[in-house]
Write a protein that binds this DNA or RNA. Structure first.
Lengths: 230, 230
DNA sequence: GGTTCTAGAACC
DNA sequence: GGTTCTAGAACC
């Protein structure tokens, strides 16, 4: 069925989805968000407006500064850290005065939650430390600098996953979109190819027809020339 | 430049990247691995062959069963858990005999690592427990059942992230590949369309040429007929 | 694999 | 937001 009736209408359908749609969906915007998917390491609390001080921070400040607690907990000489001198007594006599528990681990959990870090024991090499050392420091917890307490905030959960989830869904959406696009393009390509093949064949036929016509004309011209001479 | 010399070679180049490549890259295989990316919840240790017992488990077994430790740590009456009676003394006199430390938190960390769970204090309602209770149980740690120790294994890290990372990189690779593919297909489509347009124009010209030739032939035939009559 | 410090998460 | 139990991760 090599129809030689190829209408311009048929050719038009072959251009339904144009190339811009393709390149538009795989533009630079994507690769940027993709590299952003790499996990960020940690949170970095940027204190902005001085809000209400957390209860724990206030209690700890009072605890460390109260002279009556000096036997159990007190500032280090440099004033940049505090020390729990005898954990057992501290747990028994001090903790309950400020908190709803006497659990040292819970106390440490709160310290970590608000940015304190334990200071490594200098006797770190010894196998078993006979003298327990519990020192904690926080860049915003300095002797005599109550003002700095405003900078101490509770650590937010790191939740790198949430952003990742979002980006992940985004990725999936894009993939689906690209999939659909490839389908459409692929169909276009198929249709254009069919048109193309048909056109090529029609062209071949036209050329053949032209050749035959030309030969006929040639014969006629030669015939006429032989009759009328020149 | 409406060249009427369109060779079959030119048409062949328009079919370089064929449709199979497209559908192949977006086949069902991908969507399967995508759904597999949803996070799995937790690990489930399935003890199989009885391997060498972990040092910690053996040490704890000896510790709890040694009558000389009875004052510090011992089985509960039912034999399904053990109790640390006085944490402070336990830390000082028992822990160093078995481990390289006298840190109760480290001891608890190991317990958790090997599947022990703390038994909730019955006085859980009280605000501050004066009597510390530290009881731990493990389904495979029962009085007189040394054989069960073989079932106690160190908890594997949950690492859902590792697989996710792999799949994630895989995904990115695929996306990049699809991107390149779309580029190539898109170029193909463009080229085929140009060929198509050229062919269409050539066809138009051929048709015009044919028409003129036909008219010429018609005239000649009419001329000849007028001369030779019929 | 053990030890230590810190964080996650559930429950309050 | 506090408290508790458990897990992650780095370092040994």
């Amino acid at each position: 069925m090599l129809s030689n009736e190829i209408t311009s209408n048929e050719l038009a359908t072959a251009q339904t989805h144009d190339g811009d749609t393709i390149s538009g969906n795989i533009s630079s915007g994507n690769s940027k968000s993709l590299t952003a998917l790499k996990k960020t390491n940690k949170k970095k609390p940027l204190p902005s407006v001085p809000l209400k001080r957390p209860a724990f921070v206030v209690k700890l400040w009072k605890m460390v500064n109260d002279p009556s607690n000096d036997h159990y907990i007190s500032w280090m000489a440099k004033g940049d850290a505090f020390q729990v001198k005898d954990r057992e007594s501290f747990m028994k006599y001090v903790l309950p005065k400020y908190f709803k528990h006497n659990n040292f681990a819970s106390f440490v959990r709160q310290l970590n939650m608000y940015g304190w870090h334990k200071i490594q024991d200098v006797n770190s090499g010894a196998l078993v430390q006979t003298d327990e050392v519990w020192q904690f420091e926080n860049p915003n917890f300095l002797k005599g600098r109550e003002d700095l307490l405003d900078n101490i905030v509770r650590n937010k959960p790191a939740r790198e996953n949430e952003e990742e989830e979002v980006d992940f869904k985004h990725l999936l959406t894009q993939l689906e979109q690209m999939k659909r696009n490839q389908m459409l393009i692929s169909e276009d390509l198929k249709r254009v190819r069919q048109d193309n093949e048909m056109l090529w064949k029609e062209n071949f036929i036209a050329r053949e027809r032209h050749k035959i016509q030309s030969e006929t004309l040639d014969k006629i011209m030669r015939f006429l020339a032989s009759i009328y001479g020149n």
